[in-house]
Amino acid sequence: MSLETFIDLTFTGLVVGAIYGLFALGYTLVYGVLRLINFAHSEVFMWGSFAAVWVMMLLGGRTGMGVLPAIGLLLVALVAAMLVSGGVALVVERLAYRRLRAKNAPPLVALISAIGMSFVLSEVMGLRDRIAGWVGLREPLAPYVEKARENVSFVNPLQSVTLFSISGFQVRSTQVIVLVAAIVMMVGLDQFVRRSRLGRGVRAVSQDPEAAALMGVDKNRVIQLTFLLGGLMAGAAAVLYLMHIGVTKFNVGFILGIKAFTAAVLGGIGNIRGALLGGLVLGLAENYGSNIFGSNWKDVVSFLLLVLVLLFRPTGILGESLGKARA
């Protein structure tokens, strides 16, 4: 492996890994508070990606715009994706979890409920042409709903330029933006959970729901907040993913969701900083692995990593906890 390839693999691995980490936050937050795997989180991401694509189409984003309008458009797309993902995450909480929580249902039932929710969310997107047809909007919405089961491209209005190069490897602006944005978002979330009053509530519930309730923390509000935060981050991850990869699809969430979950487990599920670390490690492992075994085996590498981590260190690299380590 040449030095150039190595740097290439490392850098793109970090970029993809940061996206995984951002996506993984939703799994980690919800697991920290509810001790449940939110299987439908993958579709929260997918809906955010479509929101970004549609907003960009609506606002007429195209390559070769001026830099400032392009950045403006991207920011609008980012906000739209975060809002849609946050909203979908709240819907997931409301429809798939709240009733079961009230009944104290076993975790497997909650998992099945989330699997059902995940089917519904991805199929509604995959059948959007049909559904638009039922309400007579298929014609007017044609550019948005046609070819519902195929890849949809995201137009990135911001042209990617080479910033500098390290021993032959060219560092592109988009990659740097994605990496920096993902890390900034994560640090922001970490600080929010650590320092704000709402964040304290999240930590309190995750450490001892009973005691938190006795101290006057509204558990339902905290849980909604957790889903919302996870959703917002997934929406942001979706936009960064689109900037990096360029296409999305109604079932894009499935594989990516498993990878983000792997990232969460790798770093220690329930641990916010662990999600970032897990994401980066996974991104690197995937890239190095695909270089060694061939790119076809990329997904096998990440699945194997997941299985191995669950078997040998189920608490992950940093251990399970939201905020602080628990005994």
Binding site: A96, A105, A110, S113, G116, F119, E123, L127, R130
Partner: peptide, 19 residues
């Protein structure tokens, strides 16, 4: 073509109302 959607709805409904 609606079958996955239908099963998703069914799973969701069953988990919530008739586990």
């Amino acid at each position: 073509e609606f079958r996955v959607l239908a099963f998703g709805l069914l799973l969701l409904a069953l988990a919530n109302f008739r586990p």
